[in-house]
Structures are given as C-alpha cells and as structure tokens.
C-alpha cells in the first residue's frame, strides 16, 4: 500500500470524523455560537418551580427569547430564585410583566413564559419580576377536581 494513498485515506477518515462532530454539534444538539455577552440577567422568585431545570426555555408570545441560567433556594424567603438569561435584543420588557411556568403539552418539559404587561417602563438588567406564577401541580389539580372544587 503506497504511503501517499494511506496518508490521503486516513486524512479523509479524520475529516469525516470532524464533519460528524460538527453535524452532531450543530444539527443534532442545536449548538449555536451565541456568546453570553449579548444576554442580560433578570430574576424571578417562585413558590414552586416544579420540573424547571437550568437551560430551560424562556419565551414570550411563544418565541424563545432566552434560557434559564440557574435555580437556587433563597434561604430566607424559602422561595426558588431563578436567574434568566434574556437576549440583549429584547430590552423592552414592560416592568409589570409576569413570569409564568408553563408546561409544553400535557406531560412535556416545563418552561418560563413571560406574560407581557402594560407598563411604559422596561425591566433593567438585574431586575426581578414583580409577579410570578408557580408551576402547575398536577396532584393538586386532580385532587381539586376530584373533590369538586
């Protein structure tokens, strides 16, 4: 087997591997080259975050505008403090908007949806959402339904 041919074929093999990696990165896992620099942080406190997890979707009017950066327990208020990373382009969220935890479908993943308010002032980076709605608890819903309330 000629040395040159082997080199070329192995080179193609490595390129195929690289191409596979790129495919997995972009097409399969939807990795997009979005740097953290063009996002700003907003906070929201919930009584119950349910199945919300970091990297969950944050959307407004059904359009994804950011993701969840972290969820920590506030040891004084015993509420969950969620940090949201919002795209820098969406910088005019009305100050009285609400952060609502919704479920996609009936049994799907949970995400945060921003219900637009009517205030003329916008939320600044680092602000906290004034009103929030916690995750829907299926068991409570069923027991409410069953007891006819």
């Amino acid at each position: 087997m000629a040395q040159r041919t082997t080199e070329v074929i192995v080179g193609l093999f490595m390129i195929a591997g690289l191409a596979a990696l790129l495919f997995l990165a972009l097409q399969v896992s939807g990795l997009s080259p979005k740097s953290d620099g063009d996002r700003y942080a907003l906070y929201a406190n919930f009584n119950d975050t349910g199945g919300l997890a970091p990297r969950g979707k944050v959307s407004m009017a059904g359009v994804t505008i950011g993701s969840i950066r972290s969820i920590v327990l506030d040891p004084e208020t015993f509420q969950a403090r969620v940090e949201l990373a919002i795209d820098a382009g969406i910088d005019n969220i009305p100050a009285d908007s609400a952060a609502v935890i919704r479920t996609s479908g009936l049994l799907g993943d949970q995400y945060i949806d921003i219900s637009v308010g009517g205030d003329l002032e916008s939320l600044e980076p680092g602000d906290t959402f004034y009103s929030t709605q916690s995750a829907m608890n299926l068991e409570r819903l069923i027991s409410n339904f069953a007891s006819g309330r």
Binding site: A16, G17, A20, L24, V28
Partner: peptide, 9 residues
C-alpha cells in the same frame, strides 16, 4: 471516537 461519532450521525 471518530467511529462512534460517524455511527451516531
């Protein structure tokens, strides 16, 4: 790893 990635793709 290269073979595994190609397999997945």
């Amino acid at each position: 790893p290269i073979l595994a990635m190609i397999f997945s793709v």
